[in-house]
Design a protein around this nucleic acid. Structure first.
Lengths: 303, 303
DNA sequence: TAAAAATACTCCATAGGTATTTTAT
DNA sequence: ATAAAATACCTATGGAGTATTTTTA
């Protein structure tokens, strides 16, 4: 079986063209060196040296094998180097899941910062609902996810990266759009547009319980999977929607956002990951996120 | 010190993701396998596996190292394959020296044939005088040479590849050009153009002794290194020259070649090589040349 | 408790050392 | 006569085996 030892010895002899000097360079005696080269030649099935017992010369095959051997050691060095870089999180790939609304607030800044800090990491972004992300995180098909809490699974660690008030999205010509602030009660008879509960149970339940406290159940006329769609439906005067305030960033014309008069629970976005699976690349990503969060101030129209 | 053994073991474990099964595949027990992987990780300076003691998973660095390891083994296979090919003479390089006049007769056919038979051999052609070739052959800087005999050096083997009569090159309007055959004696008072003796002692001495036998010493008015030049000087009516007949192939206008009436020693071209240094590639070249020679008939205007 | 990897130890194959011979210059 | 590689033989490192423990699902 050929070992790197054989190749190292061969390289030394090929460079020195002298078994004695090569042995010296390898800090070993000459006879075992001769033996190992012999062994290598047997394994390879061809001779590497012309041995006139006085002069050592590379055969033609030896010359070519020598050049190719160099490449083997270069490839080995490269493998080690790349592995070490990866172990420091400097190269690698990172699969990131995110709910669509994260794309309108924290995500751009985080990605930009991470790309600067770790340019050798290939990012793979997937827009997914919160529970799709949980499934993929468990299966190891995702490294981190930006989800809507609550998130009560022991195997995940999480960090809140963004908090914002909920607001009412109104058609531009809706009477309530004239007011600076909307009391929730005034929406009691309005048609509502909501996410399907399975896709965002946290947000859905928040909205429902909010309405309950204002003594009404929202009349849901339409569900929509995308934030984009919800906003478009509002613009089309299909109904009103209670949405995270950062949707304002969409700048959809025909839609006006108004804060709720009531104290509302804040809509949060959390970064989650598997506790036990923190690769250096993931760690670097977490570090980048941590560095950015303090700079974030929850937008709040009431402030 | 990292050995291929370590890498082979790592590849097996990385593929099986199970030390027990990997050990089985490697026809060995599980504990030494664990040890060797440990050892590899220590050498590398980073972990290859996440060991939860129940599940084995590649770390990110491990995944990348795995990919690079594949390339190492591919490179190793390539090195062995190329070496074996070279040992069979299927690839390699061949340095060929030749005297300029060889380019007008045998060389083209030989090269063409060899290129067809051994397309993977890179040819390096050098136009050199006979003694320059001897020096380089001794130094190993040339594999074979096409020279003008005589060649009396024990360490070389040789093979005559071409023989031809000597002829007189005359200016087109020279009175002797009217004759079908020229007696050497009629050139006694003509101005001669010759090679400098050091560059082609064999040919030079042949010509001189030829003249001696015809009872005159040639009056040398000009020496020229290139056959081309000699022929041009003849065309310019500077003098006459005794040259190998194959120079006719130059088709220089203004020059007429006429055979000598006397029996002349033939000018030969020999292929020579170091007896002790016959690489498979050289052997293949010799074989090609041998196959061609019988087809060669010495051109002879007297025939 | 069952399955899998890690530890602890033991052994022997073989890499490497020493002494000597062979051979070519 | 000398330098260099090959051969013969011996030594001991460390790779691999067996038995056992540890750990977690």
């Amino acid at each position: 079986m050929i070992e790197l030892r054989h190749l190292r010895y061969f390289m030394a002899v090929a460079e020195e063209l002298h078994f004695g000097r090569a042995a010296e360079r390898l800090h070993m005696a000459q006879p075992p060196l001769s033996q190992q080269i012999r062994q290598l030649e047997t394994e390879l099935g061809f001779d590497l040296f012309h041995r006139t017992r006085r002069r050592v010369e590379l055969t033609e095959a030896g010359q070519i094998f020598f050049k190719e051997c160099r490449k083997i050691f270069q490839q080995l060095d490269l493998a080690i180097q790349k592995g070490q870089q990866a172990s420091r999180g400097e190269i690698g790939q990172l699969s990131i899941g995110f709910v669509s609304s994260a794309a309108y607030n924290v995500l751009p800044e985080i990605l930009q910062s991470f790309r600067t800090q770790a340019p050798d990491v290939t990012l793979e972004l997937q827009e997914l609902t919160s529970d799709q992300q949980l499934t993929r995180l468990r299966a190891g098909r995702l490294d981190v996810g930006f989800v809507r809490p609550p998130m009560t699974d022991e195997q995940f660690a999480s960090m809140t990266v963004f908090q914002e008030d909920l607001a009412v999205a109104l058609p531009a010509h809706h009477p309530l759009a004239a007011e600076a602030m909307v009391p929730l009660r005034s929406l009691a008879s309005e048609p509502f547009i909501l996410f399907p509960r399975p896709l965002a149970p946290g947000l859905y339940d928040q909205i429902i319980s909010l309405c309950q406290r204002a003594d009404f159940s929202p009349r849901v006329v339409q569900e929509a999977i995308q934030m984009q769609t919800i906003v478009s439906l509002v613009a089309a005067e299909i109904g009103v929607a209670i949405v995270p305030l950062s949707l304002e960033n969409l700048k959809r014309t025909g839609v006006i956002y108004r804060p709720l008069q009531e104290e509302t629970p804040q809509a949060a976005i959390a970064l989650i990951w598997q506790k036990e699976q923190v690769s250096p690349t993931i760690q670097r990503f977490l570090d980048v996120v941590k560095a950015i969060i303090p700079a974030q101030h929850s937008p709040n129209l009431k402030g």
